[in-house]
Write a protein that binds this DNA or RNA. Sequence first.
DNA 1: AGGATGATATCC
DNA 2: GATATCATCCTC
Length: 183
Amino acid sequence: MQALPRSFYNRDTTIVARELLGKHLVRVTPEGRRVGRIVEVEAYLGPHDLAAHSSKGLTERTRIMFGPAGYAYVYLIYGVHHCLNVVTEPAGRGAAVLLRALEPVEGLTDRTNGPGLLSRAMGIDRNSNGHDLLSADLFIAEAGAREQIKIVARPRIGVEYARHWARRKLRFYERGNPFVSRT
DNA sequence: AGGATGATATCC
DNA sequence: GATATCATCCTC
């Protein structure tokens, strides 16, 4: 099981988001290995995207998001849940893809159909912020061949404050997959 | 429909 | 230093 190369992430964010569907997110801890198939994501395009954290500019919080591709950007939301993103595009762009839901593949017992649930089930919190996704304990890998994924594009969740950007169809999920978060 | 719960940005 | 807000989830 091989981590995707940095070049995979260092591309247009919308393309990366769509291609992440069907890939395997892998977490290795002393307790064992956990693997989930990515079935739902959202693209955050950069400072011009009013829904993206990077629209606030380069701050301590967004430092990782403005860094090079292939790193984990993890933050605490509503004081309760952690959200896992993968940084995309060259350093300075402030773009990332939020992982929103997984289909359990191995070692997963808790629910994974939502960004907070996904992070909790995979044992991911702020300690993983800035973690290189080309590492042995947290990475994304190609999955075994399946039938062609049918991708649905919809507006992103929870970004109504972002004016016209709230309507952009930057949420992508696999059509008919029961592990997609509810809406 | 509303509460949890804490980091962060943005004011004073 | 205070406060409003938040890329969610659960219970009522």
